[in-house]
């Protein structure tokens, strides 16, 4: 459609610089400022409830169900308690869920319903500023929850290594990967019904990604499928960090998320105008 369009390009700017100039005033900070103001105005219950969700899961499944299950083989084959087995997986899952929620439902709502972005984009801000600011806020919320959850795990004695502290930045890396990809995917959606597809994709991923039981329970073909899913890499990486056990696969997991983040950022960047300038 844009083929017949004549665009006047300012002379003397490189392609990248002129792309940035057309999509940004370099003021993503204002979006972040708004985010913090909203948090300040917000009911604390809303914020705290997001923290408790994985904690309740951990208490119910880890300690409740864990009584029946006893110890399970952890990273490197060493037996660990069932609660210690699922705690890092829950952290990875909650990082994923928070990032997906913020980058899909929340973005879609603010775009289509609250018309918040229309307001922002009528100022000198551009879609790149909005995207960067919103992803930052999603990561900040993710950081708070990861901090809280890691503290809970530590207090409950489920983290046995100083490496468990590294779970916090890794939660952010996982969140970045999902948030960047989520925003790009949202650009293809037009109705709330379509948004439901996201949930349809996420639930089985949670169930199958070796979160609540080891991947070895599956036949080999399915194992290969699970190992292609991002959440599995997040879960395994978190689990290894929680006990400080590393192997070659650790680098694969990290690499997976670095690659996913880069692809996601590239993808969202390409879809930026389709998402915000309809």
């Amino acid at each position: 459609m844009s083929t017949e369009q004549q665009v006047v390009r300012p002379a003397g700017r490189g392609a990248l610089a002129s792309w940035v100039a057309s999509n940004s005033s370099g003021n993503a900070r204002a979006v972040i400022e708004r985010g913090f103001r909203v948090i300040r105005n917000q009911n604390w219950i809303v914020i705290v409830s997001g923290f408790f969700e994985p904690v309740f899961y951990l208490l119910a499944m880890g300690f409740g169900l864990g009584q029946l299950i006893g110890d399970v083989p952890g990273p490197g084959g060493q037996p660990i308690s069932y609660a210690a087995f699922i705690a890092p997986a829950l952290l990875a899952t909650s990082a994923m869920n928070g990032a997906i929620y913020d980058s899909t439902w929340n973005v879609f709502f603010k775009l289509k319903f609250a018309k918040l972005y229309q307001g922002m984009l009528a100022t000198s801000m551009g879609p790149l500023d909005v995207a960067v600011g919103e992803i930052f806020m999603a990561l900040f919320r993710g950081f708070l929850y990861a901090l809280g959850f890691t503290a809970v795990i530590t207090i409950l004695g489920l983290a046995t290594s100083w490496w468990a502290l590294a779970m916090i930045p890794v939660a952010l890396l996982i969140a970045l990967g999902f948030a960047a990809l989520g925003m790009a995917v949202t650009s293809y959606f037009d109705t709330f019904q379509q948004m439901d597809w996201i949930n349809i994709a996420l639930l089985p991923m949670f169930m199958f990604s070796a979160t609540l039981f080891p991947i070895t329970v599956f036949p080999e073909a399915i194992q290969w499928f699970v190992m292609a899913l991002p959440l599995w890499h997040g879960v395994e990486l978190m689990r290894q960090l929680s006990v400080g056990h590393f192997e070659a696969s650790t680098w694969v997991h990290i690499g997976y998320f670095v690659a996913m983040s880069l692809v996601g950022i590239g993808f969202t960047t390409r879809r930026l105008r389709a998402l915000f300038l309809r």
Binding site: V7, V8, R9, P10, S18, A21, S22, N23, S24, S25, K115, Q118, G119, A122, T123, S124, M125, G126
Partner: peptide, 15 residues
């Protein structure tokens, strides 16, 4: 479309 931020800096928009 090319200079959105620059253009909008001087605009007031009442949707």
């Amino acid at each position: 479309e090319v200079n959105g931020p620059e253009v909008r800096a001087n605009l007031g928009v009442v949707p």
